[in-house]
Write a protein that binds this DNA or RNA. Structure first.
Length: 424
RNA sequence: GUAGCCGUAGCUCAGGGGUUAGAGCGCCGGGUUGUGGUCCCGGAGGUCGGGGGUUCAAAUCCCCUCGGCUACCCCA
């Protein structure tokens, strides 16, 4: 490692082949499930005007201290930032294009946060997610939650729990904020220094503290759900009723706040019991009924969710699900003659839809056979001097001791196809 | 941003002041001249993360720095 001059920047990594394939599968799986529910893929920019993200919230660490910001080369330059999450960009796109509502999109891609890396936490990380804009129907909330659950189910995770809360509308929230602030101030001597600081910025987030010393105060704090307006309470109740109707189990988590300031009403989080608490949040989401408007669009309700690909994979590993992907290669061409035969054979096999690999550099028969074995191909197609002079190739089943047969070179594709279908 | 632990071959790790730094796995080659998976033999590959210091002598001790891990924080 000291030999290479450069390494991937802090908090980023190269994801090599078989793991990258698994991640790809995970993303595809999510996409299939989302499209089955009428969500269309949205590809949006990886960077935006920094103001787009600042709408996420002034007390959100993600925008106050974790943004990768830079100027472009314009005059005057535009202040840009790598996206730290995807919802803001989706809402910007909505405000820009004004699609007919409800607008249901899904997406995937990297996001960037300048923070201290540790396991399940990177400076560049992957999420898949979905948003429904233009409806505040509780059924949209339930559909969104269901989407997340279907995904975890599809990848085989069993130890995922759904935490559910409502943060209410503006009116409920300010009443609650007031009550909570008063309560926390009364007991401020019992709070940690850090929580006191948070209290000044965003009292709700004090509830997020994991510091043991804060827990007694937090556990006796007033809960949001007691402050919901009639309308918000009814909305929340409807969400719960629907979930009950679907036999979805969930836990009411009245102190679930989540770190993004834009959330209103329904909020939820998916946590796994197979990872440590620091990274047990594998996904989450909620309503953000004011976000589009704050980005200059029409007043538009919205709900979304984002699921962490990296953490989902960690959880899969911990639970031992999502089997190893097997080699895609079925045929390996061994050519010790070194002419253009291997090139032609590979080309024909591949054009016929058979995944095929080969050796390079004129290695010995033994070396090439080793590679063939390692490739996990089922069949080796061998060309040596004998075969070449006879105009044939040898075809060998690599997983039996049945020996090998010579066939006319021209029949290679036909024979290999037949063999593959009978062998496997 | 705060705190603790850790950086030795591609990977997992021994060695914890004294001659040319080791193992297993992986990789390459060979085992009588064209055939893999087992076995046997051989080989390549490290300025011991980087820089500075202490010492006759540093992978080993000290400082700084970079990186990794863990917790807080934050969140996926």
């Amino acid at each position: 490692m000291s030999k290479s001059l450069f390494r991937s920047p802090r908090g980023t990594r190269d994801i090599l082949a078989p793991e990258s394939t698994r991640r790809h599968q995970l993303v595809n799986r999510f996409g299939e499930i989302a499209e089955r529910s009428g969500f269309g893929l949205l590809e949006s920019p990886i960077f935006e005007d920094v103001s787009v993200f600042q709408r996420i919230g002034a007390s959100t660490d993600i925008v106050t201290k974790e943004l990768f910001e830079f100027n472009d080369k314009g005059n005057p330059p535009q202040r840009l930032a790598l996206r730290p999450e995807l919802t803001a960009g989706v809402c910007r796109a909505f405000a820009q294009h004004r699609p007919t509502v409800p607008w249901k999109v899904w997406y995937h891609g990297p996001q960037f946060r300048y923070e201290r890396p540790q396991s399940g936490r990177y400076r560049q990380f992957m999420q898949v997610g979905a948003e429904t804009l233009g409806s505040d129907d509780p059924h949209a909330d339930v559909e969104m939650i269901g989407l997340g659950l279907s995904f975890y189910e599809a990848v085989g995770l069993r130890r995922v729990r759904l935490l559910l809360n409502s943060l209410g509308d503006v009116e409920s929230r300010s009443a609650y904020r007031y009550a909570l602030t008063r309560y926390l101030q009364q007991r401020s001597t019992e709070l940690t220094e850090q929580s006191l600081a948070t209290l000044g910025v965003n009292p709700l987030r004090v509830l997020d503290s994991k510091r043991p010393a804060d827990q007694p105060v937090i556990s006796e704090a007033p809960v949001m759900t007691d402050f919901l307006t009639e309308e918000s309470a009814a909305h929340f109740q409807e969400v719960q009723d629907c979930l009950d109707g679907l036999d979805v189990s969930y836990e009411l988590a009245p102190r679930l706040v989540r770190g993004l300031d834009y959330y209103t009403r329904t909020t939820f989080e998916f946590v796994t019991d197979s990872l440590a608490a620091a990274q047990n949040a594998v996904g989450g989401g909620g309503r953000y009924d004011g976000l589009v408007e704050s980005l200059g669009g029409p007043s538009t309700p919205g709900i979304g969710l984002a699921l962490g690909v990296d953490r989902t994979l960690l959880a899969c590993e911990a639970e031992g699900v999502l089997a190893e992907v097997s080699s895609a290669v079925r045929v390996f061409v061994v050519d010790t003659v070194g002419g253009s035969q291997a090139v032609g054979l590979c080309d024909r096999l591949r054009r016929a839809g058979i995944s095929t690999d080969r050796a390079f550099d004129r290695r010995s028969m033994k070396a090439q056979m080793k590679l063939a074995d390692r490739s996990e191909a089922r069949i080796a197609v061998i060309v040596g001097p004998d075969e070449q002079s006879e105009g044939v190739v040898s075809v060998r089943d690599l997983r039996s001791h049945a020996g090998q047969q010579k066939i006319p070179e021209a029949d290679t594709v036909k024979t290999v196809k037949r063999l593959l279908s009978t062998l496997s």
